[in-house]
Design a protein around this nucleic acid. Sequence first.
DNA 1: AGATAATGTACAT
DNA 2: TGTACCTTATCTT
Length: 268
Amino acid sequence: MPEGHVIHRLARENDALFGGRPVRVSSPQGRFAEGAALIDGRVLDEAEAHGKHLFLGFGEHWLHVHLGLYGTYGFGAGEPPEPVGQVRLRMVNDSGYADLRGPTACELLTPAEKAAVHRRLGPDPLRPGEAGDEAWRRISRSGSTVAALLMDQKVLAGVGNVYRAEVLFRLGISPHRPGRDLSRTEWDAIWADLVALMHDGVAAGRIDTVRPEHTPEAMGRPPRVDDHGGEVYVYRRHDQPCLVCETPVRTEELAARNLFWCPRCQQR
DNA sequence: AGATAATGTACAT
DNA sequence: TGTACCTTATCTT
């Protein structure tokens, strides 16, 4: 479930398990064999996330991982088992192991190449000290919809389809509003809500966006389970009643992704 | 067992 | 705008 919060957790987990110690690196599947050999036995100096990109520093080599849509990381304690399925990258030390499957990117970068990745990414609500001003500059000048802009990693790094749908619902903003029609106040509210929601997501390891007053219990409705691990207002709830106003949640394809929103609650 | 969809990106057209 | 990537969970048969 890779939106930005997952990648920041992965940086933390990699650092906790492997940081400051030599690590054995291999590619059981073989597709990353050459890169793995270059960092095998070296010390993991640093683990860092920017948006959905993970960077693991081994001296002058930076291991760059992007999970894409299907990539998964699996951690375990103790001896690693025989690799199951296509394990692109395996890292092992005396404490445990990590297996990476199905990533879009698993490659070694030079410091200059790493800097180039950072340069093409917008501010990340989860990176300490980052502000939304740079994103606002682009949004306030753009005729694209706010829904498209929130998912554009050049504008803002780390937001995916779930956070996009949920933050717009929470602020009552129509996903179809052009960016240039947003007020600075509205943008500041979006940024602040993303900072809060995504930090919660890092802590919890899932995306929960429903305010206490809107839970099914608080609304006097039967309990509900979302099928993707978190409690949300509109993401993948199309045709189901809105948790607030009971209008059916709508969906539409926008730039090859599903957009979800409540036509009654999101008219601003 | 087979089909389908998915929280993402890059490239071709 | 389409499609390739490449994996898994959740349907449908």
